[in-house]
Amino acid sequence: MAKPLFQNVCNEQVFSQLYKKWSKDLYNFIYYRYGEKIGPEDKVQEAFVKLWKHCKETPPEKAKSFLFTIANNLSLNDLKHQKVVLKYQERKPREHTNESPHFLLEEKEYMQKFEKALANLSDGQREAFLLNRVEGKRHKEIAELLGISRKAVEKRIYAALDNLRKEIEGI
């Protein structure tokens, strides 16, 4: 069997490559799961510093699950079971607007309902759904990222969509 080139991650190059490869995914993972309040950037930073401290015992192929587990645990410690509320972005002005004030008001109401419904999803559902819809990740990629089966990802995303519709429409 081929011997891996690097036995552990105590090498600046290996470390910065791991950072390039995983930092954004890790950030999204924490953001969509726990929201802005938890400080997703700080969690990414702490997880990587911890990885460096434990670099001797961590081979490169184990680094990803180390990072995701640490960042998740750090967030869980901080989270005191409050609801996760994600904020939506206000829209930029359009090229031309023929939207009536009535339409804009309706849209605002819709977005507020959406925000509430999103907060009512389970962390796992919200995360899988937004990674798929917003980040454009395929089901297979999300499964690899979260370390769960593709079927489980599909179930979560479908349930999220179904729950969102039911809550928004008040069914």
């Binding site: 930092s23 950030y27 930073q45 460096w52 959406f114 937004l130």
Partner: peptide, 22 residues
């Protein structure tokens, strides 16, 4: 729902700054 979901995107992640702090 799909259209509205896009407005819940994560704020952009400042990769370089966080790396410097690390």
């Amino acid at each position: 729902i799909d259209e509205a979901a896009h407005r819940f995107g994560a704020p952009s992640f400042d990769e370089a700054r966080v790396f410097e702090q690390i």
